[in-house]
């Protein structure tokens, strides 16, 4: 299996519990009697792929990995002879409870998603739309991932000339942020390439990108795209 195939799959997990539910379903095993060794092994495989891909592996995935390993080791221990612990709980109990609770809400979320949502499925007369159009094609707001992907492409092009750089230009992040906002106020819209393509300086490139990320995080700007891998347009987020 190629890394790419994994990458697509990993995208669909909403968190470690979701991954675990997926593995349980995939292996067609009973949620009340999880084969811990098998599931832990597969879970770790996924984690390793995520690590190998340098995906920002959320700490929660590692916490659950530790929990699984812990349960696995407890399952291996022979049952204690101790009278007092006659009713020793199944080490998987807490995890099963957590999974069932998560599953309840995951299905509730699907239930919500199936409803007629105002502004998505049904519309009221005065429903306010963000009317954004790009050459007749509706624009879709994009997130950090698409930006990082676009940056990877741009920086790859720029990074081709392996030139040692002498640090003559002093740039600060706040300056770049201010520049970008000024420019957007003047021109209304900038493409990602307008902002990043203009420079040969790695340093400037990186600062510009960081400034864009920061502005997105602060919700001062928003990025849109008509089609995947299409031009990314950046606009001020205001009303």
């Amino acid at each position: 299996m190629t890394d790419r195939a994994y990458e697509i799959k990993l995208d669909i997990f909403e968190g470690p519990l979701d991954l675990l539910l997926y593995l349980i379903r995939k292996n067609e095993v009973d949620i009340y009697d999880i084969p811990i060794a098998l599931i832990t092994k597969q879970y770790m495989e996924y984690i390793n792929v995520m690590k190998a891909l340098n995906l920002d592996l959320a700490g929660e995935y590692l916490v659950l990995a530790a929990t699984l390993t812990h349960i696995k080791s407890r399952m291996l221990l022979p049952p204690t002879e101790d009278e007092e612990e006659e009713e020793e709980a199944d080490p998987r109990e807490e995890l099963v409870r957590q999974l069932l609770e998560y599953k309840t809400f995951k299905e509730a979320a699907l239930g919500l998603d199936r409803m007629d949502i105002l502004g998505r499925d049904v519309f009221s007369r005065d429903h306010t739309f963000e009317e954004i159009e790009g050459n007749g094609q509706p624009l879709r707001e994009i997130g950090i991932f698409e930006l990082v992907e676009a940056f990877r492409r741009v920086s790859f092009q720029t990074g081709q000339h392996d030139i040692m750089e002498i640090d003559v230009e002093k740039i600060s992040l706040s300056d770049r942020i201010n520049d970008i906002v000024d420019e957007l106020e003047k021109r209304g819209e900038l493409t990602f390439t307008d902002l990043l393509g203009e420079t040969d300086s790695r340093r400037r490139l990186i600062y510009t990108f960081l400034a864009i990320l920061e502005l997105m995080k602060l919700r001062i700007i928003k990025a849109y795209q008509a089609v995947p891998y299409g031009a990314i347009r950046i606009r001020l987020a205001g009303e």
Partner: peptide, 15 residues
């Protein structure tokens, strides 16, 4: 007519 879906909620947001 309207062009865009303002209320598109991600699965994570739905959950």
């Amino acid at each position: 007519l309207k062009g865009q879906k303002p209320m598109d909620l991600s699965p994570a947001a739905m959950e």
